[in-house]
Design a protein around this nucleic acid. Structure first.
Length: 555
RNA sequence: CGCGGGGUAGAGCAGCCUGGUAGCUCGCGAGGCUCAUAACCUCGAGGUCCUUGGUUCAAAUCCAAGCCCCGCAACCA
């Protein structure tokens, strides 16, 4: 029975370039998942977009002496192009500054407001007179009241670890200009999360197959008691609050950005010419929504967004939120500001997208932080993707091409033949199950084992020898070998779509690899089909000065 | 006592939930093969499973305490 699956990917912030941490953390797992389900014949929609509001955008804009719109336009485009070049099969890459998103977000706010889940309250907020704006907590710095550290931030002190409020700081100053902020009365709107504890807990307990770290974190948040959260800000760069007298204020970016999953689906429907097609993905309770995010976003996707959905009613809740841990470089976090780690665009200029995808998938930080290294990248590419996987396809097809020119007819199967096919079948089952459970590293390992099985089979059969001694057996052995290769590249295509496409064409099939083919991957081959031009699938990466230099520059 | 994750061969990791002779990939050593991108296949060397204590016939696995590393703490995937 065919399933319907909505794949949601965390919205990258449009004030700096994407780096490999974003890819390994969210984009690649989401894309593997989406591509796999298409291969299984399921209906899939994948949405995301640029998060374009909030103070960091305006700060970047001021530093660059540009308008916020210019900044987000630049990065939105760069992100969209980079993701496309990486082969991310997204159906709609939307943006929060789009008028249609703003309208959807405002409607969402009003729905919750009308249901009395949003309430106006007086509040005090730090305001910088010289910058003439309200400051987010993190933008207020001062002396920690607990340990006396000089550079504590309004949300916490890094030295003693205590959680702070901006008003706790002694000698507070604006991080942007250094002047002392004043505290001003303002009126903000609060999402009444405290009313939602029970439904959220019920929601959490009804989910199956979630990662334990996600469940634990969410459960502990709820257990500590949920606080009502301010979801509006005194900011001009954002979605205006849709209430009279509040149009000078904006919706808090995180309240507004998560609505993007919903608005992007509607945008996709409009562009596809069926404006109501979004309903299938949000209103049909059989549809499964998966949210691929980094661990820092867990509460937003397991508490705040579900609370919003529960409050509005009639929309699907997340089926799973397979949050990833972090990708580190030499034990340090990727950092936009400190220039640590590799940017996506720079990698794409240097390497094939599948080479990047294979390596990142093989070290994906699913259960703990993972370490990125150029040495590991070269090794995984040359020793695994090229030598074991690419080389298997290459040696089998090259020999077949030279010997027969076409896919040979299979004769009666020997026990070795059947054993090899059975191994491939096991691989398909185990790898498929692992991907469905969002265990992408495990699935890749299964697929790698299949390539090893293929190489063992080819070595044992020695079809180059058989071609001279026993042509009938040679035909059968190569037929089986090609069947395994075809299965291999189909199973691998969620990970390395370009390479699989190339191998598919070498086998003489017409592009592209069709949807729904996963379960037929091992089926009979069209005998006497003419092979395409056979060439190398994977480029060798030399451990040369260049890689060394990049290493030095990036580490 | 803020919360979470982790510590297993030279490197990177799986196994732990559901105790039963320590496994995988890379690297290293020896052999085989010669279809294939110096690729492939076979065999081998290499480990006090962070420490200590407990439960048990039996602990990498369960329990307790401790040490160390990392992340989060509501505006970094």
């Amino acid at each position: 029975m065919s399933r319907t699956i909505l794949v949601c990917v965390a919205w990258p912030y449009a004030n700096s370039s994407l780096h490999l941490g974003h890819i390994a953390g969210t984009w690649l797992p989401a894309d593997i998942f989406a591509r796999y389900h298409r291969l299984k014949g399921n209906r899939v929609l994948m949405v995301s977009g640029s998060d374009e509001h909030g103070t960091p955008i305006t700060v970047t804009a001021e530093q660059e002496k540009k308008s916020p719109q210019e900044i987000v336009d630049f990065f939105h485009r760069q992100h969209a192009e980079g993701l496309k070049a990486l082969g991310i099969s997204i159906d709609c890459y939307f943006r929060t500054s789009h008028p249609d998103h703003k309208r959807v977000a405002q409607d969402f706010f009003k729905e919750l407001y009308d249901r009395k889940l949003i309430e106006e309250r007086p509040s005090e907020a730090p305001y910088c007179p010289s910058c003439r704006r309200f400051l987010p907590d993190r933008y207020v710095e001062g002396v920690c009241p607990n340990c006396g550290a000089l550079d504590a931030r309004g949300d916490q002190c890094d030295r003693c670890g205590n959680t702070l409020d901006p008003s706790d700081l002694k000698n507070p100053r604006c991080r942007l200009c250094g002047q002392a902020p004043v505290f001003r009365e303002t009126r903000l709107h609060y999402l009444l999360l405290s009313k939602m504890e029970k439904p959220l807990l019920d929601f959490l307990e009804s989910r199956r197959g979630w990662r334990s770290s996600v469940v634990n974190l969410t459960r502990s948040w709820i257990k500590e008691g949920l606080h009502d959260r301010a979801i509006t800000r005194d900011l001009s760069w954002g979605v205006p609050v849709p209430l009279e007298g509040f149009s000078e204020k904006s919706l808090y970016v995180w309240f507004e950005a998560v609505i993007g999953y919903f608005s992007a689906t509607q945008q996709w429907a409009r562009l596809s010419g069926q404006a109501s097609a979004w309903k299938e993905f949000w209103e049909d309770p059989k549809t499964e929504a998966y949210y691929f995010i980094g661990k820092d976003n867990i509460p937003f996707h397991t508490i705040i967004w579900p609370a919003m959905l529960l409050g509005r009613g009639g929309l699907n809740l997340p089926a799973n939120v397979p949050a990833n841990e972090y990708l580190l470089v030499s034990g340090e976090k990727f950092s936009k500001s400190r220039g640590i780690g590799a940017k996506l665009n720079e990698c794409l200029a240097e390497f094939d997208s599948d080479q990047i995808r294979y390596y990142l998938a093989s070290i994906m930080p699913e259960t703990s932080d993972a370490d990125f290294s150029w040495d590991g990248f070269v090794s995984r590419n040359n020793d695994e993707l090229l030598s074991v996987i690419g080389n298997l396809v290459n040696r089998v097809l090259a020999l077949t091409q030279r010997t027969f020119g076409v896919i040979p007819q299979s004769g009666e199967l020997s026990s070795d033949d059947r054993a090899a096919l059975a191994a491939a079948e096991r691989c398909a089952r185990d790898a498929g199950l692992a991907i469905e459970q969002c265990e992408f590293k495990k699935a890749l390992k299964e697929i790698y084992v299949l390539a090893q099985t293929g190489n063992q089979y080819v070595n044992a059969q020695a079809p180059w020898k058989l071609a001279k001694e026993n042509p009938d057996r040679a035909r059968t052995a190569l037929h089986i070998a090609i069947r395994i290769c075809r299965a291999l590249i189909i199973y691998l295509s969620p990970y390395t779509p370009m390479m699989s496409q190339k191998a598919w064409a070498m086998m003489g099939f017409e592009a592209p690899v069709p949807n729904g083919v996963w379960d037929q991957a091992l089926g009979p081959l069209p005998a006497n089909q003419k092979l395409g031009a056979v060439g190398h699938l994977v480029k060798r990466i030399e451990r040369d000065a260049k890689t060394g230099k990049e290493q030095a520059a990036n580490l």
